[in-house]
Amino acid sequence: MSRRDREAAARQRMERTPPPVPPDLYVEVVRRGTRMLRRRRAARRLMWLLLFVAVVAFSLWAATVQPWVEPPSETTPPLNGW
């Protein structure tokens, strides 16, 4: 098929009238779109909640364990001459 044939076929397809759309399609699309938006919103809120819980848990752990403090030495040199 040459380029002119492909262009002619494409023009014929674009000049045709589109097929009729079922009347209840709009209602179904709106219902599905609303449900999809609700799910996305719920997922986003859940992710923010999980992030908040993780930050609080890490903060509490860091406050109690204090990982930035050097641990005390477990061996002490003998004290002679006291």
Score class of each variant (00 low, 15 high):
Arg32Pro: 00
Gly33Trp: 05
Gly33His: 08
Gly33Met: 08
Gly33Lys: 07
Thr34Tyr: 10
Thr34Ala: 13
Arg35Leu: 09
Met36Trp: 14
Met36Leu: 15
Met36His: 11
Leu37Ala: 15
Arg38Pro: 00
Arg39Lys: 12
Arg39Ala: 05
Arg40Lys: 10
Arg40Phe: 14
Arg41Trp: 09
Arg41Ile: 01
Arg41Ala: 04
Ala42Trp: 04
Ala42Met: 05
Ala42Lys: 00
Ala43Gly: 14
Ala43Lys: 11
Ala43Met: 13
Ala43Asp: 10
Ala43His: 13
Arg44Leu: 07
Arg44Asn: 11
Arg45Pro: 01
Arg45Met: 03
Arg45Glu: 06
Arg45Thr: 03
Arg45His: 10
Leu46Phe: 07
Leu46Cys: 02
Met47His: 06
Met47Leu: 09
Trp48Tyr: 08
Leu49Arg: 11
Leu49Asn: 12
Leu49Cys: 15
Leu50Cys: 13
Leu50Ile: 10
Leu50Trp: 03
Leu50Arg: 04
Leu51Trp: 10
Phe52Gln: 01
Phe52Tyr: 03
Phe52Asp: 02
Val53Asn: 10
Val53Gln: 08
Ala54Ile: 07
Ala54His: 09
Ala54Lys: 03
Val55Lys: 05
Val55Gln: 10
Val55Phe: 14
Val56Ser: 05
Val56Met: 08
Val56Phe: 09
Ala57Cys: 11
Ala57His: 04
Phe58Leu: 13
Ser59Tyr: 08
Ser59His: 08
Trp61Arg: 02
Ala62Pro: 01
Ala62His: 10
Ala62Thr: 12
Ala62Leu: 06
Ala62Ile: 01
Ala63Met: 13
Ala63Glu: 09
Ala63Pro: 13
Ala63Gly: 15
Thr64Glu: 00
Val65Arg: 09
Gln66Asp: 07
Gln66Tyr: 02
Gln66Asn: 03
Pro67Trp: 02
Pro67Glu: 01
Pro67Cys: 00
Pro67Tyr: 04
Trp68Cys: 00
Trp68Lys: 01
